[in-house]
Nucleic acid binder design. Sequence first.
DNA 1: CGCTGCGTTGAGACTACTCAATATCCGTGG
DNA 2: CCACGGATATTGAGTAGTCTCAACGCAGCG
Lengths: 240, 240
Amino acid sequence: MTDLLFRKLQRRDRRLSEAEEKVLAAAVSHHIEVEADVEVVRQDEISQQSLLLEQGWACRYASLPDGRRQILSIHVPGDFVDLQSFPLKRMDHTVATLTRCRIAVYPHANLRKITEQFPHLTRMLWLTTLIDAAILRQWLLGSGQRSALERAAHLLCELRSRLDVVGEVAGETFDLPLTQAELGETLGISQVHANRVVGALRNRRLVTWRDEKVRILDWPGLQELAAFDPVYLALESMER
Amino acid sequence: MTDLLFRKLQRRDRRLSEAEEKVLAAAVSHHIEVEADVEVVRQDEISQQSLLLEQGWACRYASLPDGRRQILSIHVPGDFVDLQSFPLKRMDHTVATLTRCRIAVYPHANLRKITEQFPHLTRMLWLTTLIDAAILRQWLLGSGQRSALERAAHLLCELRSRLDVVGEVAGETFDLPLTQAELGETLGISQVHANRVVGALRNRRLVTWRDEKVRILDWPGLQELAAFDPVYLALESMER
DNA sequence: CGCTGCGTTGAGACTACTCAATATCCGTGG
DNA sequence: CCACGGATATTGAGTAGTCTCAACGCAGCG
């Protein structure tokens, strides 16, 4: 199932060819299955391969020497979780699974061959790392300027949009395998405050959230609160 | 002076060839001079070219509908300020000058040719966008987990390191053309609090900061306070 | 049955915010 | 040459958002 990534890329650029799909699929050396809560790539390691999430959830985080931890991104099926390690080599953060995951492994040597023979596909891979960066900028904008409640709302808007692309939203419900402690580390607030923020979203009848399942009750209201504008996710075609 | 960028890249990878230097230099269509406080690329625009800062300072920022603004990065000579617009096309944020700037213009068509003929150089350009993302991750880590004082200290550590590479640190002094209001927008705090934070750095005899000049008085102390580890800046060679 | 992990709630403390006033510097026009 | 306005920096006072500490509830599981 390189399918998911390919579908996502093709949504963005319809000129992606079947040949390119095959090249991408052929660059996978093998697949692995990993349990939940496993660190698959660690900070400071020098990486020889990049990992594509096929099933399951993962996140990246960085830590301060005293243990404070910040989740830097959340990944869903179809995401490359550490493609940046291909040009960058050394990891500046850790990648861990949130659930049991199925992962495709792309040795850097194979990616290098792609860059040498398939410039258009190379630009598309580059693009995926830049969309990651765009998401990061939104998180930074939120972290600096949005209140905790607005950030929580924004996170849900973002995830709903990203999950929708890969067909993981049923009705208005989707999985979100984060504990409230992890939500706190994502939003940059304490676990206790994360709990109150989730409570506030519920009280405003914007969402329900129980047993790792989120249901959006008021999509326009949630977007409004979050000041959410999905353009940055670059989900739509740039052609014409 | 593509020199600065090239020197920076070469510090990272000594295999960069003279041929590549020439190709990079040839991709510049022209140079422009821009006054301070000019928006050179605007949010939502579709960009046809990327800009390399040769002299002067610039920053990127994004805004919320109600006007709250977050500075997302600060750029010094030798930085590509919007290389991500080459694969991404649409800008998700604005780039503005902080001082009078000299800028080299790289039409996307020329960059595209580089990706088609110079895979190694392409990977180096990709790398520069990934270092930007690594810096962004550090800012996000700080925004979520570091106190305002620690963030301010970290920003100074980061800028000292980046400026050092391009030879803009004299003794322990460097320019920092940010008002305290802009510092607030960078750190995600109010202008008033930014002032108090700067005051605290002075009181602890870590730095002096007057007339847009910063002098570091206690480099180890500043790094300690900031929990600064320069690895993420990827300034050092990855060879061998 | 008693851990253990997760979610929930309360109370008091602290960081950073807003509003507001004052200080300083600088350029401009009278 | 001086008065003035505008931009920036500084300081004070009260407030809002978020924190820490602590306790408790509940479910799953060995």
